[in-house]
């Protein structure tokens, strides 16, 4: 849930999604779900010369499992909060077991 929660805050931000097939797509994040499927709008392929067939594509849906990396805008990531969130995430299952 941490990653889903994290990506939710990036909705509306420009991101670059690198896929496992080496395609890298830059676009505005429209939505993300629990599988980290990603919807992008106003997309632009990073290496357009290599993928001319993507020129006409304006938006896309990316299955979460084919994503290799997502490049984020540094300004919209709160790393301290992310650490806290990771701590909470770690506590969560443990707390459930204890109870």
């Amino acid at each position: 849930m941490l990653f889903y929660s994290f990506f939710k805050t990036l909705v509306g931000q420009p991101v670059t999604v690198e896929l496992k097939n080496d395609l890298a797509i830059t676009g505005v994040l429209v939505s993300v779900d629990q599988f980290l499927n990603i919807k992008l709008d106003n997309i632009k392929v990073v290496d357009e010369g290599r993928y001319p067939h993507m020129l006409a594509v304006k938006n896309c849906f990316i299955r979460g499992s084919v994503v290799r990396y997502v490049q984020l805008p540094a300004a919209s990531v709160d790393t301290a909060l992310l650490q806290d969130a990771a701590r909470r995430e770690r506590q969560q299952p443990a707390a459930g077991v204890r109870k």
Binding site: S5, T9, D33
Partner: peptide, 25 residues
């Protein structure tokens, strides 16, 4: 079905980052 996967009764536990980030922002 989709939403039941995403919604929890304790947003600060399962959706901590988003909640706090939004609050701060």
């Amino acid at each position: 079905i989709q939403i039941s996967q995403l919604v929890t009764d304790d947003p600060y536990a399962d959706d901590f980052y988003c909640q706090v980030y939004t609050a701060i922002r």
